[in-house]
Computed example of a mutant assay.
Amino acid sequence: MCPRCGTELHRVLRSGRLAKAWLSVSLQTLHAGRADVAVLAIRRSLSFKQTPEAKLLKGFLIRRQYRALYQSLGQQNWREARGILDGLRTLQGDNETLLRFAELVGYLSFQSNENRTIGE
């Protein structure tokens, strides 16, 4: 308890510890090649405390996810592209850019399926 104002500090301290623990989980899972889990973990970390480290990692993950999205589009891997878009929505929420990418993936995957069906 704060001697000055009487606030219970154990909750504040606990939030800081949880934020640090989830940041660690995010870093470990990213290192293990599981960006999808790292995205969820960094979001959880930030829900406890908005630390500069977590914000930095979130920005890194966003940039990394966009690079992965471009790569999956180039490889015409529509399922992977949709998964990456889900991760980006988790990090950024819905925004105009992500909505347009989702429309693009939907259109290109439809065209790809149409071309495959015609060729059979």
Rank of each mutant, 00 (worst) to 15 (best):
M1K: 05
M1S: 13
P3T: 08
P3K: 13
P3F: 07
R4K: 13
C5N: 11
T7F: 00
E8Y: 08
E8Q: 09
R11E: 07
R11S: 03
R14L: 07
S15F: 01
S15V: 00
R17E: 07
R17A: 08
L18A: 04
K20W: 10
K20T: 12
A21Q: 15
A21V: 12
W22Y: 14
W22G: 03
S24W: 13
V25K: 09
S26V: 05
L27N: 08
Q28A: 15
L30M: 09
H31L: 10
H31E: 15
H31G: 15
R34T: 09
R34W: 12
A35N: 05
A35I: 13
V37A: 14
A41Y: 10
R44S: 08
S45V: 05
L46S: 04
F48I: 02
Q50V: 06
P52W: 05
P52A: 13
E53V: 05
A54V: 11
A54H: 09
L56Y: 04
G59K: 09
G59F: 03
L61E: 05
L61H: 13
L61M: 07
I62Y: 04
I62M: 05
I62D: 05
R63M: 06
Q65W: 04
Y66I: 08
L69P: 02
Y70K: 09
Q71T: 05
Q71S: 11
Q71L: 06
Q71V: 02
S72C: 05
S72K: 02
S72V: 04
L73I: 06
Q75P: 01
W78I: 02
A81T: 00
G83K: 11
L85H: 03
L85Q: 08
L85V: 08
D86S: 14
D86W: 02
G87N: 15
L88T: 12
L88W: 07
L88G: 11
Q92W: 03
G93N: 07
N95Y: 06
N95K: 10
N95E: 13
T97C: 02
L99W: 03
L99C: 03
L99K: 12
R100N: 09
R100Q: 13
A102Y: 02
L104S: 03
V105D: 00
V105W: 00
Y107S: 08
Y107H: 10
S109R: 09
S109V: 03
S112I: 01
N113P: 05
E114R: 13
E114F: 15
T117R: 15
I118Q: 09
I118D: 07
G119M: 14
E120N: 12
